[in-house]
Design a protein around this nucleic acid. Structure first.
Lengths: 237, 237
DNA sequence: CATCTTAGTTTAAAATTTAAACTAAGGTAG
DNA sequence: CTACCTTAGTTTAAATTTTAAACTAAGATG
């Protein structure tokens, strides 16, 4: 038992993981709760923060324990602290936002006796706690961020074509179709893509494969020259 | 005394308040700590969250208690939770980011026996805890945000001239001088400014006074038409 | 070898951005 | 009352960027 002079809240982490499989829908990683409260309902992966553990570490640990997913892009989203958001008492949750490509992280090893699943963002089940709010904020963040930081690459496999990249942007931004020529020109102009080969065995002209050049990106970003990126990623809607 | 089955961290809020007085430097609101740890050193306003109180409410309450400043623009910045960031034990701090104009919130009523002061952002004293990191992140957020959201208005008095607005942007972004004609054209094109009179008793041609039109802004922002704003606020550096 | 599908280019018209030279409106000093 | 100082604000033409049409390219398949 632990005793303190003043009352203290519990602190948890929750993690919103977006996945992309090349289709027209983004996916979201959810677990089915095996214990009360909200037993049987779907929720975000997450759990209590250990006292000697960094917040981001806690989020990644809980994610791996509950879903087997690891090695992915992650950043802090927002801290949800409404009194009353958790029926067990005052629970403050630091929410994280993560991106992963489903090719490289396909199977999800269920553990901790909870079910795990990838849900289409447009067809989510009823969610526990205030997790619907957290997901809404994460979705807004993704849509905003994709327009000024090259985070889209986190959702694609190591090597990808410009067509795949364009489909991803169209999916994230929920847009019918961008102008192909201009998408190509804008993206390539930034210099953050690197040619790394060609498609094999496709029943049409094989596309050039690209990979994301982190080095060039860091140079652009640090030079305060983010205008190049912003202008390139700022598609007409 | 309060007893729990598992150990719990303490949760605090800290608030980074930027002020602007028309000069070439942004100001930051700091308090001098009256109690250990870091007694006598300067720090951000902040304190412990009450158990039945919203996080933002806690930040605003602590700010008013410690500095007398209230009624200002505020948003969540980031949650700092490194084990070891506070010598008293595990303390997780939800940091907030705030903007205020110094004309309307000039005097700062010291209370709680601490000293209070506005410091130039370029000449900060040594700071307690990890508050230097928090301030650095807040400054980056301000510089990034000013380019795609019209938050600059929060730092100016109700009525202002285009010259004042331009000076503010030059100060925030640390830029010598923007092109006057283009600044004017871009800002006015958005329609978020409203003419509300003229300067009086100035030794030169009196400028038109403007105020921020929240309604137009909301309309633009909700229409997903944020490109108008981004393009207008995206100054060449 | 014709045909299908997706990849990728060239380019001219339209739109926007840039910045130079200019005019305007007050106060102040003599 | 007039010349002059300071800052406000405009007009506009040249330079640049964006847009989107019509086109060519490359491989697989039957």
């Amino acid at each position: 038992m632990y005793t303190y002079e003043y009352p203290r809240p519990s602190v948890t982490v929750d993690i919103v993981v977006f996945g992309y499989d090349g289709g027209r829908q983004l996916k979201l990683l959810l677990i089915q709760r095996g214990a009360p409260p909200f037993k049987g309902q779907w929720a975000l992966p997450g759990g209590f923060v250990d006292l000697d553990e960094d917040l981001e570490t806690a989020a990644l640990r809980e994610l791996e324990e509950e879903t087997g997913v690891k090695d992915l892009f992650v950043e802090q989203l927002f801290t949800f602290g409404d009194p009353g958001r958790d029926p067990r008492g005052r629970v403050i949750s630091v929410a994280y936002f993560a991106l992963v490509n489903l090719q490289d992280h396909p199977a999800v090893a269920a553990s901790d006796a909870d079910e795990v699943g990838w849900y289409s963002l447009e067809e989510l089940p009823e969610l526990a706690f205030d997790h619907a709010d957290i997901i809404e904020m994460a979705t807004n963040r993704l849509r905003a961020k994709v327009r000024y930081q090259p985070i889209g690459f986190e959702l694609l496999p190591e090597k990808f074509t410009l067509g795949q990249l364009q489909s991803l942007y169209e999916t994230v931004l929920n847009v019918e179709e961008f102008n192909k020529r201009n998408f190509r020109t804008r993206i390539l102009r930034t210099g953050i893509l690197e040619e790394v080969g060609r498609q094999q065995n496709v029943a049409h002209r094989p596309a050039v494969l690209y990979s994301f050049n982190e080095e060039t990106y860091q140079r652009l970003a640090s030079q305060r020259d983010t205008g190049v990126l912003r202008r390139a990623l700022d598609f007409e809607l």
